[in-house]
Amino acid sequence: MPAVKRYWEDVKEGEALPEMRIEGLTRTDFVRYAGASGDFNPIHHDQTFAEASGNPTVFAMGMLNAGILSRVVTRFVGRPAVRRYRVRFATRAWPGDDVVCTGKVTRKLEEDGEARIAGELHAVNQKGETLISGSFVAALPRRP
């Protein structure tokens, strides 16, 4: 029997998801994500290419930050519960930047025969600038 992280009845609209913070992204993080994901756009690992593109240096793939942000949801509901995950990229994250992830439950709903929660997500850097705004939908078990 799978362990239940949370019952639908116990989640409140407006409830905050626990914050998660990654300190100091490194170029190695970008390279590791390039290998893991297959995203070899040189703008994320090649200094020469990054400069030729008008950037001071390489910057994080949006999807690296999106992967980090998704953990705010999976820690709260568990990976199997995730039904939808959506991100919109705002500003970029540079080497040395922190990624601070927060979220909030905005709505409880019934959809496709499941008890679900919907929420919003934010990833910001150490200056509070938005890296990503996002949203999620997850299905939770009802209290027996």
């Binding site: 994500y33 953990r71 999976t74």
Partner: peptide, 24 residues
């Protein structure tokens, strides 16, 4: 590899027995 790249240590991605129990 992917879980490590997003700095996620959730045993669901690493531990077969745990994952079987939790998520099939």
């Amino acid at each position: 590899e992917f879980a490590r790249a997003i700095k996620d240590a959730d045993p669901l991605y690493f531990d077969e027995e745990y994952a079987k129990r939790e998520a099939g």
